[in-house]
């Protein structure tokens, strides 16, 4: 079973809202869709909403970091939104981090950050 993450396009911003837990394959599929969409609409920013996830392990963290790095090479920004407290704590204890990637509490916050930039 594959879970397709909806990706919205709004004023040059891609918004990927993860709705449920993803398998590694689903995350890789999301990665390639985001990257091709960034190119096709020449997006200036990618917002990935992960608030529905209750686990972000080393694979998920690494893949999201790769997405952000690729997006950055296209001259666009990535903001990861909605990491839950328990998930944040587990990531930190595992030694995982989103270094050099912007994070936001919710979509409003993410848009504020994009406006401020």
């Amino acid at each position: 079973m594959t879970r397709r993450v909806p990706i919205l396009r709004q004023n040059g911003i891609l918004i990927a809202s993860i709705q449920e837990e993803l398998s590694d394959g689903d995350i890789l599929a999301l990665q390639s869709r985001i990257l091709s969409d960034v190119v096709s609409i020449n997006a200036k920013a990618v917002v990935i909403d992960v608030s529905a996830l209750d686990v972000l392990d080393s694979f998920g963290t690494r893949t999201l970091t790769e997405i952000a790095s690729s997006v950055e090479l296209r001259g666009a920004r990535t903001i990861i939104v909605g990491i839950q407290p328990e998930v944040a704590m587990a990531m930190v204890l595992l030694g995982l981090d989103f270094r050099n990637i912007a994070t936001a509490f919710d979509l409003d916050h993410a848009f504020d950050l994009l406006r401020a930039a």
Binding site: G82, P85, A88, M91, D97, F98, T103
Partner: peptide, 10 residues
């Protein structure tokens, strides 16, 4: 760690 986790939350 607390501050790192806070940052992950934005």
């Amino acid at each position: 760690q607390s501050m790192a986790a806070a940052r992950l939350m934005g």
